[in-house]
Design a protein around this nucleic acid. Sequence first.
DNA 1: GCCGTTTTCGGCCCGACTGTTTTCAGTCG
Length: 576
Amino acid sequence: MRNTEIAAALSELGTLYELDGAVRYRVNAYREAARVIRDSPVSVEELAREGRATELPGVGKTLEEKILALVDTGSIPAADKLKERFPVSLVEVTQVPGIGARTARRLHEELGISGLEQLKEAAESGRLRGVRGMGQRAEENVLAAVDRLEREGVAERQLLSQVLPVAEEVADRLREHPAVADVMLAGSARRMAETCKDVDLIAATTDPEAVGAALAADPLAATAGAGGDAGARMMTHNGITVELRIAKPEEFGNLVQHFTGSAEHNVKLRERAVGRGLSVSEHGIKDTDSGEVTLCAAEEEVYERLELAYIEPELREGGAEIKAAANGKLPKLVTREDIRGDLHCHTTLSDGHNTLEEMAEAARERGYSYLAITDHSATHGFGNDVQPDALLARVEEVRALDRKINGMKLLAGTETNILPDGSPDYEDDVLGELDWVIASVHTSFRISEKAMTDRVVAAIEHPLVDCIGHLTGRMILRRRPYDIDVERVAEAAAANGTMLEINGNPNRRDMSEQNARLAADAGATIVINTDAHRVGTMENIRYGVATARRAWLTADQIANTRGWRTFARLRKRARA
DNA sequence: GCCGTTTTCGGCCCGACTGTTTTCAGTCG
């Protein structure tokens, strides 16, 4: 059973307990455990069977038993029992914004509502108003929310790459405003999460009205709400909500810290603060005894006041980062400036939009020391396969250009398909002519986990395969990863000296941060690539680096932070 | 239900907003 399924079942059980009136700490425990399980890179089913699920933070003996029951029998007895009293569809009702478990339960008891359809009927017929705490506004809210849920499902998220450029453009413009002292991006976009719900910006100013007006007048704004002293809001023409919070310059750091989150990070931060007699909020850090409030103009001061090392935004997910910051054990994260070369890109020879020369020149302009040209291979299909003779001709072209181009090494490579039996789709004598070989799965996704793992491990063991591309084939928000045992793959990669790629395409970010962490822990060598199909998308290196940073990786753990000579020696073909 | 540089029991983050209400519970981020 997948981690996401286990997480969903525990989260549902948490809500059922909440409907039943359980203390909120118990409910929170289920939700927190669900989150940890969802993000776990290793199979929680296997962990539970080995009696090791309690190694996950937030999972104790009780939850381990429930997980075991779930994976063995397909359901949890406690949940089955609760479902006799509360219909599962009542859980959906709690997804309506503004309706929590307590309200849902009252609606169930007083109006017999057990699902969205009945909730809608009750709102339409005016029966909703008979319930204490529900009036006309609640009725309107419910009708709009149910309508939206039926149309779009649960809250929509967008890819970071759709949101981040908008956020940066608006922030840059606001920063130019004379009344603005500073603007910072906050929220999940600042943490470089895979997806975002909206854009959070914090502006330091003494003139909220003017800044709110500037946001409303931004060229990207399609609609804008009325701004106030605390903030303003607008929506762009492509449906991205921008939330602007206004801070006085002396409290700018407090607001930036607070709204960067994550919520879980802030909870853990405050729990730690309480133990030291401090109370943290967006309005400052209060000494509980004296009542004295410390304001922080800069975010760094918040962490300093709590006797913590500064925590990079990418790490603020409520995991082990606070403990690490307290013990001086935070890693020095890899940066974009550390990256010395890109080992995965395409040209017009296959499905790229720019020529070999254009891609090489773009890499040189970026200051890279090396670039690998890795067009698709003989069986890629879609009309952009590269037959062996074409590839060998391309090798000569790359070598010729490499001799001409100054200050950079061009590698003749390929992104070869891993066929269902695990072999690359060029013969060894062709692969042997190349400087660099990435092997990726592009076909036959729907095979068993064992078959897929065997297939990729076979490629890892091939002496002429240097690196595995986009390990799980996922497309964020569009296609889930294929079934593969990443632990076994990582061990094989470490044992064979085959590198594993973090693909920086923002649709992929594959390996994921969880898998990248697991691979690094297993001792595998990691490279960060863009898979660029045009000059412009070489900039996607930022998303690859972001994933590496969210995986807690240092420059040492990334092969393409090395200069060419060192990197060349790390290649498997150089070691053979 | 989890967890421990105070703890194996007794704690477990903070404030704003909303809608409905004369003082606040529920919800949200």
